[in-house]
Design a protein around this nucleic acid. Structure first.
Length: 638
RNA sequence: GCGGGCGUAGCUCAAUUGGAUAGAGCAUCUGACUACGGAUCAGAAGGUUAGGGGUUCGACUCCCUUCGCCCGCACCA
């Protein structure tokens, strides 16, 4: 759907060459072809350096509308476009191929833009945007009595990164993290019941119980409850006779007893029975302590105050469902209460109450949405949850809107992510087929990182190396998780991700360490004598000072720096952190190129030295800021 | 069966949302002033973007279709 170029648009940031060029070419199109509605101009960074820095590709499209030859249209745009301050003058030679317009920025513009970017008040082009809606980010999502495993990694890392990016853009008070804890329902009741029994039998000490023990007890309890229940259901579904089912039920006598007991426990829990509640609270505390610790180890900001257990919505479910029923949005079907969504293109209805009268997770999610929007004031709710939940969220979002639980303008988004695969291409599991504990994965990453640092830097003190290894491990894990397209599966290979070479988190830390090394050398040379670079460094650090772009290496670095603010905004819009990863990797690469071709401390003149030092300072700031958004801690040396 | 996702170099991943010769990193090969951290850089080689049709001046991208893999599909969360 082409938009009218005559429509007003928000003014472009003075840092954003791309947006400025779009603006200018929009003006040019209106000037050259008055009265004709034309689509917004298409301007893009040139893929190939020989085509300049940017290219305008609209002449071909406009030619179609105007019925003129594309090169003629291109020439008309050249005639009308005003780029004097921004780019080298365009001429007939700027038109290439079928009508591409090649644009090269003026060094003076790049230098001014860098100066603007570097001004402290500009915050690297990311001053808080007061119009950004309050945003709830649903992340982590642990379950009571279950050890965190590899399946929690992505929800924890991606969710945290999205939250960090939105906080950077809208200010810290605009983002509310919510850890939707699975702390309610029959599964929890099963463990609670089992734990009560074990405690009564003197087999466990509740005060000293660990998450590992809870995890084991959970599995036992669950096993005892649904040992043969599945078989009975299958027998019924396959139309087997009542005799077969009766036999199975006989065999499943114990499981059914356990299940019944769990159901009774659930009722007691829901009615506030103090004895049951005490055990439940203990399970909650132990689980959450482990969760918070794991998150901290991953450098994800998930604190107790972010916990939003399903139990906290318990009291709201019945009234919510009653409203849905009264308003006619929900209807009975085969004994269950459902919200039909077929008119919204979703064939499967959203079940809000089971035929046995119980509520299910969709009900809780609806209550959570209402809370997030009405109470927490969210204008946008982002769910960082496995892609397999896609249908569930489509249903819940549609139902929420249909029922008027949230206003239509509130954006409900499922930031779906793919599965972590093992190197065999199958979902990542341990040798025994069990899911791998998150803590183990982190341990191994730290061990590998430590070995790498030791091999390369044997003289580093152990305590420092331990700190560095932690940072490298986090960089490795987080960067890999964030660097590929969110919805896709990816292969988990610690060996590859902990490498210091190539497109990895550790490489980014290395690039930053090299920047820091130059600045350290500038400040304090080996001998005790005053640094010969002191004057140049002071000039470079002086606020508001000017940049100087002459060498290709300097220009490439400058262009990479200038892309940063836009990359961060793209992440906020698309909820795709890999765009920021790519931006930072390109920045690191540009710096490496600069590092090779443009000596800083041995620069040909004092002026060049100070200008290059200024580039180093800005690179350090941008890299640090960007890594911070990815939740990757930085180190001085490694 | 219906719905959704995916398929890009030997391997792991990109491609600014329709633009020029599809880019990186591993691995392979060739080079680089005894180097402000060589954990680097420059270059080479590697592709029928799963196959086939269509739309378009122009397609990895949009539409149709076949193949392959993954995931969902009312009352577990």
């Amino acid at each position: 759907m082409p938009t009218d170029a005559h429509a007003a648009s928000t003014p472009a940031s003075p840092l954003d060459a791309l947006a400025l060029l779009r603006e200018r070419f929009g003006d040019a199109a209106r000037g050259a072809f008055p009265g004709t509605a034309l689509p917004e101009p298409v301007v893009a960074a040139s893929a190939n350096a020989k085509f300049g820095d940017f290219q305008c590709n609209s002449a071909m499209a406009y030619a179609k509308v105007l019925g003129q030859p594309p090169r003629q249209v291109a020439l008309a745009l050249v005639e009308h476009v005003k780029l004097d301050d921004l780019a080298e003058p365009l001429g007939p030679a700027s038109v290439a191929g079928p009508g591409f317009l090649n644009i090269t920025l003026k060094p003076a513009w790049i230098e001014r833009a860098l100066t603007t970017l570097a001004v402290p008040a500009a915050q690297l082009g990311l001053t808080p945007d007061a119009t950004m809606p309050h945003t709830v980010v649903d992340l982590c999502g642990v379950n009571l009595a279950k050890q965190m495993h590899i399946g929690h990694l992505r929800a924890t890392v991606i969710g945290d990164t999205i939250a960090r990016v939105l906080e950077r853009l809208g200010g810290p008070d605009r983002v509310i993290r919510q850890n939707h804890v699975g702390d309610w329902g029959l599964p929890i009741a099963m463990v609670t019941a089992k734990l009560l029994a074990l405690e009564a039998a003197g087999e466990v000490n509740l005060a000293a119980i660990t998450i590992d023990q809870l995890d084991a007890i959970y599995k036992r309890a669950k096993g005892e409850c649904d040992a043969n229940v599945g078989a009975i259901r299958a027998a019924a579904a396959w139309g087997m006779g009542p005799k077969v089912i009766a036999e199975l039920e006989e065999a499943a006598h114990d499981p059914l007893v356990a299940l019944t007991h769990a159901k009774t426990t659930l009722v007691r829990l829901q009615s506030g029975d103090a004895g049951v509640r005490r055990v439940w609270q203990r399970i909650y505390d132990v689980t959450m302590a482990a969760c918070i610790e794991n998150c901290a180890r991953l450098n994800s900001i998930v604190k107790p105050r972010h916990s939003a257990g399903e139990s906290s919505y318990e009291a709201k479910l019945a009234p919510l469902v009653a409203r849905l029923e009264a308003s006619g949005v929900a209807e009975l079907s085969a004994g269950a209460l459902i919200v039909r969504l077929d008119e919204l293109g979703i064939a499967e209805p959203c079940i809000v109450r089971k035929s046995d009268g119980g509520f299910i997770y969709a009900t809780t999610d609806l209550a959570a949405i209402e809370h997030r929007v009405r109470t927490l004031g969210a204008g946008r709710v982002v769910y960082c949850v496995d892609a397999r939940q896609a249908l569930h969220f489509r249903q819940v979002f549609a139902a929420a809107h249909k029922a008027g639980i949230v206003p239509a303008e509130v954006s409900l988004e499922h930031a779906a992510f793919g599965t972590i695969l093992g190197e065999d291409g199958r979902p990542f599991k341990s040798r025994s087929g069990e899911s791998v504990r998150l803590g183990e994965v982190i341990d191994e990453a730290v061990a590998r990182a430590d070995a790498q640092v030791l091999a390369r830097n044997p003289q580093m003190p152990d305590t420092q190396r331990a700190e560095v290894a932690k940072a490298v491990a986090i960089a490795a894990i987080r960067y890999t998780d964030l660097a590929s397209e969110r919805v896709k599966d990816y292969v988990f290979s610690l060996e590859r991700m902990v490498k210091f070479e190539g497109d990895t988190g550790p490489y980014l830390l290395y690039a930053l360490a090299r920047v820091g090394s130059i600045l350290r050398n500038a400040a304090e040379p080996a001998s005790g004598a005053p640094s010969p670079h002191a004057a140049a460094l002071a000039a470079a650090l002086a606020p508001g000072g000017s940049f100087m772009i002459t060498e290709p290496g300097e220009k490439a670095l400058a262009m990479a720096l200038l892309r940063y603010p836009q990359a961060v905004r793209e992440v906020a819009r698309t909820l795709e952190p890999h765009r920021l990863c790519a931006c930072l990797y390109e920045l690191a690469g540009a710096f490496s190129g600069f590092f090779e071709s443009c000596p800083v401390l041995k620069a040909p003149s004092e002026q060049a030295k100070s200008a290059r030092l200024r580039l180093c300072v800005l690179t350090q700031r941008v890299m640090t800021d960007g890594l911070g958004l990815l939740g990757i801690p930085t180190v001085e040396r490694m």
